[in-house]
Design a protein around this nucleic acid. Structure first.
Lengths: 142, 142
DNA sequence: ATTTATCCTATAAACTTAGTAGGTTTATTG
DNA sequence: CAATAAACCTACTAAGTTTATAGGATAAAT
């Protein structure tokens, strides 16, 4: 299992906000609609605000809204942010120290191929394409 | 991070055994060569034997060997066995109960697409192709 | 009988996930 | 200006998964 609830929830929130444009949408409303615990959602929204994916407006009438148009967010960028990395194995992760067996690793290029495949797929789909209202041809292939 | 050490170790063991054909190879030898703890390796080998991927021979001169030729094992089949599932999200897992939001899930077909992509890639590569000695064209694309 | 090896059951430390709790700050509105 | 509604912040925790470890029982060859 690769993608945790955190990443999946984040995606759903972004789609939810894309489907409710205009005013700021309060956390409570998103939580209810998406059936996510308010406190847990708070953590997820915080990271999305920190990375400027969302704008959080305090005070009465406040809430959250997208900072860009839905077509400007790729699924990959959102998942990479919330999951930390999309690499299918630890050794491909930037942060992890170099594997000592790299010199004659039989599997490295296979993993790199998988990594590239996943990234290209997820970076090729935007929030706009996941919205219910979106029309111009479902571009990603099942 | 999707693939744990268990799956990665299993792959390395299968390749190791493919590269050392003929006699039975004792666990201790694999563990040393692959730098994997003997006790942990035991657990991994046990599951591979249970699924008939390997034959385990007890007693003096015993050890492990492949039950089939290296081209008969796909990377996908080995990882699916040791990891349990290759599904990138819980809702695609056979065992997990149906998600209550399935009726208007915006992301389901996107996840299904990713799942298919991953499975087809990993089922398209065999242990034979990962062996150092293997010649007939590196078939998988990086 | 001795050696070498797999096989089996149980335990545990470390890490990650998924979530809770309670309070602080900011902005709007009546 | 006070009440209210909202985001923001810090800390904690329960549960599950990963990554092993320990100690022995069983089997086969010499």
């Amino acid at each position: 299992m690769m993608i945790s609830t955190k990443g999946r929830y984040a995606l759903r929130v972004m789609i939810d906000l894309a489907e409710h444009p205009g005013d700021y949408v309060p956390l409570k409303e998103i939580a209810q609609r998406q059936e996510i615990s308010e406190k847990y959602l708070e953590i997820i929204l915080k990271s999305l605000v920190r990375e400027k994916f969302l704008i959080g407006q305090r005070g009465k009438g406040g809430g959250y809204r997208l900072s860009k148009t839905p077509d400007a967010y790729t699924v990959g960028s959102i998942l990479r942010l919330t999951e930390g990395s999309l690499a299918p194995v630890a050794c491909l992760n930037e942060k992890s120290e170099q594997c000592t067996r790299v010199h004659d690793c039989r599997t490295l290029s296979m993993w790199q191929g998988l990594d590239k495949l996943i990234s290209e797929y997820l970076d090729g789909i935007t929030i706009a394409e996941l919205m219910a209202s979106y029309q111009p041809g479902d571009n990603y292939i099942i």
